[in-house]
């Protein structure tokens, strides 16, 4: 089974690094979609089957937190796991995100091994 992934971050550099890290992690990937803000992320979710979302917090147009809240209000998207990848180190903010149902939080800069472990746990895939 191949997993379709959505990466939502206003930095093209981060989106490419996340995609590269996923490909190196031996995760069976289907399509990988990119969005540069929360609204574009919701648009991609509305028109594609997505198995896992990676989202930044601070983005223009619509933040990652707003996007996650909108996803939770939608019967289809509320069950899609979201991994927040952000520079934020606030324990308060991380607790808030967990309250919103975020599956995991990865702080930038991240190590490829840490990233891989989290994704394999969420997808239930084998960690090589």
């Amino acid at each position: 089974m191949a997993f379709n992934i959505l990466i939502v971050d206003d930095s093209m550099t981060v989106r490419k690094v996340i995609e590269k890290t996923l490909r190196m992690a031996d995760i069976p990937l289907g399509d990988v979609f990119h969005a540069s803000n929360g609204q574009q992320g919701l648009d991609a979710l509305a028109s594609n089957w997505i198995d896992l979302v990676f989202a930044d917090i601070n983005m223009p147009v619509m933040t990652g937190v707003e996007m996650i809240q909108k996803m939770a209000e939608d019967g289809v998207t509320k069950s899609i796991p979201v991994v927040v990848v952000s520079t934020e180190g606030s324990a308060t903010r991380i607790e808030e995100l967990k309250d919103h149902g975020v599956a995991a939080y990865i702080r930038k800069p991240f190590k490829a091994e840490q990233f891989s472990t989290v994704v394999h746990e969420i997808l239930g895939t084998t960690h090589a």
Binding site: D10, S11, T13, V14, N58, M59, P60, S86, T87, E88, G89, S90, A91, T92, R93, E96, R107, K108, P109
Partner: peptide, 26 residues
Amino acid sequence: GELMNVTLGQLLTTVAGEEPVFDLSP
């Protein structure tokens, strides 16, 4: 820009601790 984003995130934790919440601009 991303280098600055990560630097500021780390810097704010270093100087203000892990409790405060900050919003960062693009």
